[in-house]
């Protein structure tokens, strides 16, 4: 069964064999959970959203086209769930002011030469969290979920060139935030 492609499994789900979704869930629960976690930073909330994604897959199973790619379709749903969730919550994720966070980091004074790399990662993690959701989204999808720009273009319903522009702008913002955080840490 493991050798079956995502599309073959989803086609079975579409035909009414709901158990086939169990395998897809096994394959994708972690990536989808990761996507939500990168987007909202709350593990419990993210798990709820993963369940919503799989419920939507069942509800909209008829809309899956076997000539399309399951992974793209899945992230398209995940992205919509995330979008709806933000709208419903009427809040920005990581709404903590990043300057406050920079100040907190400074106060911690955890500078330790051996841990520099880990600290760089922690800094990047924090910088990502302070990006606006739409910019964070393209970076998360491309780098963490390793989706191709053509796939992201399909998910966001924009052109591939537009995706590249979004990624570039997101990188610029990330750089600005990252450098500010770094500056805060070093002073």
């Amino acid at each position: 069964m493991e050798t079956l492609t995502d599309n073959a499994l989803m086609t079975r789900v579409k035909q009414g064999n709901y158990d086939a979704l169990g395998l897809l869930f096994k394959r994708y629960q972690k990536p989808i959970l990761g996507f939500f976690y990168r987007m909202n930073g709350n593990a419990a909330e993210s798990e709820d959203l993963v369940q919503m994604v799989f419920e939507r897959i069942l509800r909209y199973r008829e809309q899956f086209r076997s000539e399309g790619e399951f992974r793209t379709w899945l992230f398209h749903i995940a992205r919509n769930v995330q979008h709806d969730f933000f709208k419903k919550q009427q809040k920005e994720p990581f709404n903590k002011n990043w300057e406050d966070w920079a100040a907190a980091l400074e106060a911690e004074n955890t500078a330790d030469g051996d841990l520099e790399k880990i600290q760089d990662l922690a800094l990047l993690d924090q910088a990502l969290k302070h990006l606006s959701p739409d910019k964070r989204e393209v970076l998360v999808l491309s780098r963490f979920e390793e989706l191709k720009y053509s796939q992201i273009a399909e998910i966001l319903n924009i052109t591939e060139a537009n995706v590249k522009i979004k990624v570039f702008r997101a990188l610029q913002d990330l750089k600005r935030i990252y450098q500010t955080l770094e500056h805060g840490k070093n002073t």
Binding site: Y149, A161, K164, F168
Partner: peptide
């Protein structure tokens, strides 16, 4: 900028 974006995606 497109190339830089490609670089980010290891592509």
């Amino acid at each position: 900028q497109g190339f830089i974006a490609d670089f980010w995606a290891k592509n």
